[in-house]
Design a protein around this nucleic acid. Structure first.
Length: 490
RNA sequence: CGGGACGUGGCUCAGCCCGGUAGAGCACUCCCUUGGGGUGGGAGGGGUCGCGAGUUCGAAUCUCGCCGUCCCGACCA
């Protein structure tokens, strides 16, 4: 490589850029087991911030956490016909334990519907026990053929919410509510705009009545399904005898929902905001929001500036303007033997939202020199009231990142595609989201997929639909039943 | 599982055609230098050349087999 300090560029090879960034920013590393990965502290730190924000939102909507076991009797998985069909090929199965062959093989959970609804059936007797609102943070295993760091690995971390309700409408409301929670999280924390909508029959969860998803656009204009929420109807309650007695005294099957987001979102974060210099983290998810780099020449200066940098850190971290539980997250990089410039590159690669440089000149001027990660804009910040100024810049970064990502998505969204040929041409070139009609026939979906690799990402919710609803199906030209978002996807 | 490529210090790779006892850059350790965007120099540590067999006086290099990785296709959060 001509310059192996630089990343491959996004324009040069998006896929290589992504892999290099994830490895070099130390978000994750390949594990000795093909297809699985180690999440390193930089990556896990982002996950922890995601978990915290989401967990608070789950609690605020009345859910409680629990933990269900990793191993599931194989027979459980087979109880729901669609479910087993969807997951059987990608299940890892434990056949031996304690040095003996097991009587019944145990499946390593690819998702926990079966074990959870089995347990729910024991816990629910009456309508008074409903709704039952449970979430678990867990790892799951799906034996994928082709894997990518964070985006698709054999094992990944996620949360799965599982609820039981007395009526279909309550379950539907819950399904939509949690999709909304995901959307809020993705927009407000990840600064990642998403389109919400319903999945087509072929893309829905195996065993669900309906699946809704959040779809985001990556910088290569491909779609990433970032979160899903399922109305499971009574499919699982019937398979697992999850019944309750109504107020009127009748016995009915409960209505279930399940919803999940995973460490895949970290991949989405990288591909939404990263640039050719590395990761760009939205402040609200950044384990370190501000890095302070003292600059010195002499030993005398070194002592003075390191002390000043530490004093700044203390001032920033003790500031309570965001509330006592949301202090600024600040790191001082006073490493010796490394030039300031080299530190800049390193922290940029790791995506720290704001850098503060503190040198002799700044001390004289009673200011610090700041550099934004997202725009790379530089400006001095007065020492007086520095914490408030910094907090304000971070807020600006957060909202600017969202606005930039949204503008990019809109720039690559097409609502007036002239013809199927034009669509093919677009998918052959730049790609993007195409809002176009769909007759509702799975055959048309399959045809488009085979010919262009693009699929229906979702039937968008009303607010995302075009002012003028499309009248013809993209593929067959017949009357359109829905407006659909078509795109190539991860 | 089909098609293609590749396995050589931690990383990226050269050496292989034409066999002769292993190299570069980066990274790492130490010293000096430098220090507001990847300083420069010096010294040093580190390799069963993927594994196994074969040919040969001698194999990283040639032959065969195996294993593994990556990319492209069939499945997917």
């Amino acid at each position: 490589m001509a310059d192996d300090k630089k990343l491959t560029t996004r324009a040069g090879d998006f896929s290589a850029w992504y892999n290099e960034l994830v490895l070099r920013a130390e978000l994750a590393d390949y594990s000795p087991v093909k297809g699985s990965m180690v999440i390193r502290p930089n990556g896990y730190g982002i996950w922890e911030r995601m978990q915290r924000a989401l967990d608070d939102m789950f609690k605020a909507t009345g859910h409680r956490n629990a933990y269900f076991p990793l191993l599931i009797p194989e027979s459980f998985l087979k109880k729901e016909a669609q479910h087993v069909e969807g997951f059987a090929p990608e299940c890892a199965v434990v056949t031996h334990g304690g040095g003996k062959k097991l009587e019944e093989p145990l499946v390593i959970r690819p998702t926990s519907e079966t074990i959870i609804y089995h347990m729910f059936a024991k816990w629910v007797q009456s309508y008074r026990d409903l709704p039952l609102l449970i979430n678990q943070w867990a790892n799951v295993v799906r034996w994928e053929m082709r894997t990518r760091l964070f985006l698709r690995t054999l094992e990944f971390l996620w949360q799965e919410g599982h609820t039981a309700h007395a009526t279909h409408d309550e379950a539907e409301e819950e399904t939509r509510r949690m999709l909304g929670v995901y959307r809020t999280f993705m927009e407000e924390f990840m600064a990642m705009p998403v389109i919400t909508g319903q999945k087509s029959e072929s893309e829905k969860f195996a065993g669900a009545l309906r699946t809704y998803s959040c779809e985001a656009m990556m910088q290569d204009n491909k779609a990433l399904q970032a979160g899903t929420s399922h109305n499971l109807g009574q499919n699982f309650s019937k398979a697992f005898e999850l019944k309750f007695q109504t107020e009127a005294g009748d016995i009915e099957f409960a209505w279930n929902t399940s919803w999940g987001v995973s460490t895949r979102m970290i991949g989405g974060l990288v591909m939404t905001h990263g640039d050719d210099n590395g990761l760009v983290t939205p402040p609200r998810l950044a384990p370190i929001e501000v890095v302070i780099i003292p600059i010195w020449k002499t030993d005398d200066e070194k002592a003075k500036l390191t002390e000043a940098a530490n004093a700044h850190r203390d001032e920033l971290t003790s500031w309570m303007g965001r509330g006592a539980h949301d202090r600024l997250r600040v790191h001082v990089d006073a490493r010796d033997g490394m030039r300031a410039g080299a530190k800049y590159y390193e922290w940029e690669l790791q995506g720290v939202p704001l850098r503060l440089e503190l040198g002799p000149k700044d001390l004289e001027k009673q200011s610090v020199f700041s550099a934004r990660r997202d725009t790379r804009a530089k400006a001095p910040i007065a020492m007086a009231g520095v914490a408030e100024s910094v907090a304000k810049v971070l807020e600006t970064i957060q909202s600017d990142m969202f606005a930039a990502a949204k503008a990019r998505r809109e720039a690559h969204s097409v609502r007036d595609i002239a013809s199927y040929d034009a669509f093919k041409q677009l998918m052959d070139g730049d790609g993007g989201f195409v809002y176009a009609g769909w007759c509702g026939d799975g055959a048309c979906e399959t045809k488009v997929k085979e010919e262009t690799k693009a699929t229906i990402r979702c039937i968008p919710d009303e607010e995302f639909r075009s002012a003028q609803a499309p009248t013809a199906c993209l593929a067959c030209g017949g009357p359109a039943k829905h407006e659909a978002v078509w795109a190539k996807a991860y």
